[in-house]
Design a protein around this nucleic acid. Structure first.
Lengths: 194, 194
DNA sequence: GTCTATAGCCCGATAGAC
DNA sequence: GTCTATCGGGCTATAGAC
């Protein structure tokens, strides 16, 4: 009852890892199959054994990356009850991933999936960001977030958190995110708290 | 004493306009010369008469777009004295441009210039964003912005302003930016005010 | 399953007429 | 200055041996 395509030497995973790194760095269209071959050490023929074509490889990477992020976010939310703490969980996850899984975080921040999927939803419409908006909406009901449009408050918060991560990757911010995390989280919360 | 290449019918400008739109939409590498020919109504030969190659067209567009933004920003700063008002000038410029010059604003937000210029400075290192940081630093000195690292406060503010613009372009935000501008500016200022 | 070699296609840039 | 037609290069995806 096993999958019909066995990946005995983890080649599939190596291709995925190398390709995501390259896609983020150079953009989907700039990455050639020979590039992926060189970076992963897996041959052209083997790549086409695991993926129908370059586009379906990109789609697979996209889905996996989003699903992994969503799972991590939900896991960290379990122990948090107040709105402030839940939003902090998002910020901390993002800051942690920027250090421990930079490929994943850069993908989420910078990847243009429209280069290979014409009519896919923007990332900010996907589950994790829907969840953020829901948390903010509940925060307004509970009186923890200032009254107003929950959408606007959610955007103000995530903007104040995600922009520093972008600038850290672009080497504009010199200090590691962990050193300035508390100040960033405080600023973001000050923008929307009741 | 005139330029040696005359552009009698504004073809050069039409190429620039069409190419910037296409570059933002599809990314540098996805845009082909035939695409630009179709979108601008200018022939291949004429395009190569005005620009040495595709890359130098992209560089020209990049420089012009940044310089235009910087000029507009400086102009709007002239009448503002307090830190809050200066930062508001930035926010209002960005919101206005998103409506009146969406191509320009999308270019500034989304364009990956590293696709055609390998070692160019990130946009956030360029003059307009240096200026923002300077304004915030002065605001801290004057006691208008809370004490701390001016870099962090500048990033928190611009993040809370630019993210909504991104989401508006991605059609995640349904309301026009002008309708929610005051709330966004208030949130961003709340994040960093003294 | 995995490899190498290559077919077939499309793009950027140019040549040469007007 | 502007056009159309085309060349050479480099890409994706496949063929066929192992």
């Amino acid at each position: 009852m096993r999958r019909y395509k066995i990946d005995s030497q983890g080649k599939r995973a190596r291709v995925v890892k190398a390709a995501r790194r390259l896609f983020v760095e150079k953009g989907y269209h700039s990455v050639t199959i020979p590039d992926i071959v060189a970076a992963s050490g897996v041959s052209t023929g083997a790549i086409y054994n695991y993926f129908a074509n370059k586009e379906s490889l990109a789609r697979y990477i996209h889905e996996r990356t989003l699903a992994d992020f969503q799972e991590m976010f939900e896991q960290r939310l379990e122990s948090r009850s107040s709105t402030c703490e839940k939003l902090r969980a998002f910020a901390e996850l993002v800051f942690d991933l920027a250090e421990s899984e930079p490929d994943m975080m850069e993908y989420l921040l910078f990847m243009r999936h429209c280069e290979f999927m014409q009519n896919a939803a923007p990332i900010c419409f996907t589950e994790p960001f829907q969840l953020i908006r829901q948390i903010v909406a509940e925060g307004i009901e509970k009186g923890e977030v200032k009254p107003g449009d929950f959408f606007i408050s959610a955007v103000s918060y995530t903007g104040a958190i995600l922009r520093p991560v972008e600038l850290r990757f672009r080497c504009v911010l010199e200090k590691p995110l962990h050193d300035i995390a508390e100040e960033l989280i405080a600023n973001a919360w000050a923008a929307i708290k009741a």
